[in-house]
């Protein structure tokens, strides 16, 4: 999902300071098996801490970068109402990033470190945000498909074993459902409009369908580290399970809109009750993850510039706080 790069292990894993005993690991697993929630200062395996830091921070980075494709259409949204709504959605994305950075910090990583990793290009974020928004219909497609896929992943995360992450996800899910409805409503308006508007909606679906499916990560057979995440109840459903669920519900919505899903192999299988679909082009997925998608460089450049341009605000805030503290002393 917003964490799909997770499956690639980091090249240099630092050595552990205190070797973990089998008893400690078993006791921890027993807590997990009892559906107990792990809180910030509880004992946890280093690998549990590290994988969560990576997953949560990647999720946070995705929210922040995700503001860009939609921000691209803010001033050109077709009405004042739609501008206000899109602004609220983008503001929510910023807020989600902030909840997630806060949750990650409870595990011992600093905000500065996470920001630095994003700006240096070291940290990953969801591949979907490296695609451009070429038309207003893309804003609808993002709300409907991208937020829809995110919701599919985020609802189970509300029950993940790590307390601060689960609570942040509950908050996010409450806010996310307006995002998907906003997107669907845009698509519906376009599909009920002129021929050109409907064609624009179809074109958006054509470009965002496959990247949205890729958001769920590699096939289970290729997903080497999922097993540990499942055992520790960080991940509650497999990539393929969530992807299938997404396809099953979304194809019906596309039919309602009168749009065609761009997959010649898509067919409802009576026996299983699910839609069969064509194989995903994983080369595109890995290219985009490796930094060679359409907008990777632009997204990073914009984030770096925003950070640099905002430096004076941070400095001024610090100077003012220091001055007031000195006066009070």
């Amino acid at each position: 999902m917003y964490t799909q790069g997770l499956d690639q292990q980091e090249k240099s894993e630092p050595q552990q300071k205190n070797p973990e005993t089998a008893e400690q690991l078993e006791a921890f697993q027993a807590r997990i098996d009892l559906e107990e929630k792990i809180e910030a200062k509880d004992w946890m395996p280093e690998a549990y801490r590290k994988t969560l830091i990576r997953q949560i921070s990647q999720h946070a980075h995705s929210e922040i970068i995700g503001m860009q494709p939609e921000g691209n259409w803010l001033t050109r949204a077709p009405s004042l109402k739609r501008k206000a709504i899109l602004l609220a959605k983008i503001q929510d994305e910023a807020g989600h990033g902030l909840y997630l950075y806060s949750a990650a910090e409870t595990l011992g990583v600093s905000r500065d470190q996470m920001v630095a990793d994003l700006l240096s290009g070291k940290a990953k974020y969801s591949s979907i945000f490296n695609y451009p928004t070429l038309t207003w219909a893309d804003v609808g497609a993002i709300g409907w498909l991208v937020d829809g896929a995110a919701i599919m992943n985020q609802i189970p995360l509300c029950r993940c074993s790590y307390g601060p992450y689960a609570r942040a996800m509950i908050r996010v899910c409450k806010e996310e459902s307006f995002h998907q409805r906003q997107g669907f409503e845009i698509m519906l308006t376009l599909c009920r409009g002129s021929d050109e508007q409907k064609a624009m909606a179809q074109d958006a679906l054509n470009r965002f369908w496959w990247p949205s499916l890729m958001m769920f990560g590699p096939n289970d057979s290729e997903s080497k580290h999922s097993a540990q995440s499942m055992a520790w109840k960080i991940k509650r459903f497999s990539n393929d399970e969530l992807r299938q669920k997404f396809i099953d519900v979304t194809v019906q919505q596309a039919e309602f809109l009168g749009l065609k899903v761009p997959d010649e192999g898509l067919a409802f299988d009576e026996k299983s009750g699910h839609y069969r679909f064509s194989e995903i082009d994983w080369q595109e997925f890995f290219d985009v993850l490796a930094g060679n998608g359409p907008c990777n460089r632009q997204r990073m450049a914009k984030r770096r510039k925003a950070h640099e341009d905002g430096a004076w605000v941070r400095e001024a805030a610090r100077a003012y706080a220091d001055k007031k503290a000195a006066k009070a002393a």
């Binding site: 902030l98 909840y99 806060s102 908050r171 706080a321 503290a325």
Partner: peptide, 23 residues
Amino acid sequence: AGSLHAADDQMALDHARDTYTRR
């Protein structure tokens, strides 16, 4: 509800309102 970074107490209140009470 969670945490946030702010330069001082007043900014912390303003940020808390903007981050945690949008609904």
